[in-house]
Design a protein around this nucleic acid. Structure first.
Length: 298
DNA sequence: ATCGGGATTGCCT
DNA sequence: GGCAATCCCGATG
């Protein structure tokens, strides 16, 4: 029964993949006949590695200035031990350049470190290498995208260390929020209220949706890919420095003692953090400060 | 071929 | 804050 269902689904997916690329841009309607900004088919297509030309053209202004990735962080930055890199990501800006040249930007405010080898909570636990987690064993800076709960995606970046990678959990939207909102709302019920800015990227799968990070970005190089990269923060710095909270990773309770390792890092008090851990914040040391001008950038 | 778990999310109470 | 939705992946036989 279940097998049959799966087979039928596989056939449907194959048929969808074989369909012509020009699939009804902005012609799609839902049951109520209301025109959708982004159709389910288009959303699906963005997940399945097709271009993102369907994304609405943004209003052009100085805010959308098309900058070349001159501030792009290179190989050196990613070649750090996993936990160091996880903290180093905080405050850096993830940039997604869409097919029409639009750039979406978000400041990283929450990460998790997944070591290889003895870290039982890691996909690469015990040095186990599979088709899925291959990117974790590739050079530092390699993107690892995987599917979670069958329907969502998570984006990681491999670090120094065999099979080690950092999960990106939350971003603060900086540029292209209207498009992010459109991408996120495409899966929501009709008539649902608009998402606030801080709700656009406050979760690992939400950020993949909002920045249109598809599954096929798996194994790409964040240090050289033309469609996605990382920058130092050139935006206005906060008046007060953010303290880094170090807390147990979320969603891995079943992994015993490894679930307790404080390898989730986030900016204390930042509104875009997905899960706040008050106990960890009480123990947060003042020495752990995010400072983009410091040498912690490497 | 089949099974069980999962680095989550959105909606409802 | 609880819980259903939803299916891929890897392990097992």
């Amino acid at each position: 029964m279940a097998g049959r269902k799966r087979k039928l689904l596989a056939v449907a997916v194959a048929a969808a993949a074989a369909a012509p690329p020009e699939r009804e841009v902005n012609k799609h309607k839902n049951e109520t006949g209301v025109k959708l900004e982004v159709s389910p088919a288009q959303l699906k297509s963005s997940i399945q590695c097709e271009n993102s030309a369907h994304i609405a053209e943004p209003e052009r202004s100085h805010y959308f200035t098309q900058t070349e990735p001159q501030h792009r962080l290179g190989e050196d930055f990613f070649s750090q031990p996993c936990i160091t890199l996880a903290k180093g990501f905080l405050g850096k800006v993830l940039v997604r350049r869409c097919a029409d040249g639009t750039e979406l930007r978000g400041r990283i405010v929450e990460t998790e470190a997944y070591l290889g080898g003895e870290d039982r909570a890691s996909h690469s636990a015990g040095g186990k290498r599979t088709e899925r987690n291959t990117a974790m064993f590739m050079k530092p800076g390699t993107i690892y995208v995987y599917t979670i709960y069958g329907i969502y995606l998570c984006m990681n970046v491999s670090s120094e260390g065999e099979g080690a990678a950092v999960l990106l959990r939350s971003l603060e939207p900086l540029q292209g929020q209207p498009i992010m909102r459109q991408l996120r709302a495409a899966r929501h019920k009709e008539g649902t209220r608009q998402l606030k800015d801080k709700e656009l990227c406050n979760g690992p799968s939400k950020l993949c949706q909002a920045l249109n990070i598809p599954r096929c970005f798996d194994r790409r190089d964040l240090a050289s890919d033309p469609e996605v990269w990382l920058e130092r923060d050139s935006h206005t710095s906060p008046a007060e420095p953010y303290y880094i909270v170090s807390a147990p990773r979320v969603g891995i309770e079943s992994h015993g003692e490894w679930a307790k390792k404080p390898w989730r890092f986030y900016l204390r008090g930042h509104p875009c953090v997905s899960v706040v851990n008050k106990e960890a914040e009480r123990q947060c040391r003042s020495g752990n400060v995010m400072n983009n001008l410091s040498s912690s950038d490497v």
